[in-house]
Design a protein around this nucleic acid. Structure first.
Lengths: 109, 109
DNA sequence: TAATTAGTTCTACATTGTGGTTCTAATCTG
DNA sequence: CAGATTAGAACCACAATGTAGAACTAATTA
């Protein structure tokens, strides 16, 4: 089963509307969640997910900006999408009836 | 942030309709998720959650059954409920727009 | 009094989470 | 051109969570 941060990373990467590469994914994460994402957390998790075949990465060309280094492009594989879906469904399923979902403070019926 | 299994455990414990004690929680988890939960996973996680103040446990009386040993009763604290709610909301929030939620394979609009 | 049994305790190791420091190669400045 | 500056990635270290299973405890049963 995916971890929560792995799920977050896959989701941010799969998010349409932006080129997915390391630093951009990090910004996406920080913007969406308002929690900081360290560089280490980012790339170690990318590495691990690629190992597991849930992401695919390749080096893109360098951009013509000051300091512009070649980017590590990232794409979620179909296996990665499946894993994310599993995680989401598991959490959703588990949560059925929980008071923090229904707002009913733990009633039975 | 809670881990996924921690969340599962809190949710199973908070689930109404059963006395929450170690072995029963384990059965609840296995029944609800169809995945096995080892004894070690169960009690180490209970210990850790109690350390963090998200659960409270105490020893109940022995039941008059063959082998009936006193049970470790478990209750989710209000802090535990809050943590579970946080986890759930984080996952829900992250997931907005994901193709595995909308079923639209990553469209933009 | 030995066998059986519900339930828990304890130990060990694998996987994920998280932060920061260092390295790389490109543009900019003088 | 040499040094300063900068976007971006690689790497290292350690903490927190996940997961298994063997050993222990105390009660009932035969």
């Amino acid at each position: 089963m995916l971890g929560e941060f792995e799920y977050l990373l896959i989701t941010a990467t799969a998010s349409p509307g932006d080129e997915a590469y390391g630093a951009a994914i990090r910004e996406e994460i920080q913007k969406n969640t308002r929690r900081s994402c360290s560089i280490g957390a980012l790339y170690t998790t990318i590495d691990r997910l690629e190992q597991k075949g849930l992401l695919r990465t390749w080096m893109g060309a360098a951009t013509p900006e000051r300091g512009g280094r070649s980017k590590r492009m990232v794409r979620v594989t179909s296996k990665g999408v499946a894993a994310a879906k599993d995680f989401y469904q598991a959490v959703t399923r588990i949560s059925q009836g929980a008071s923090w979902v229904t707002g009913r403070a733990g009633e039975v019926s």
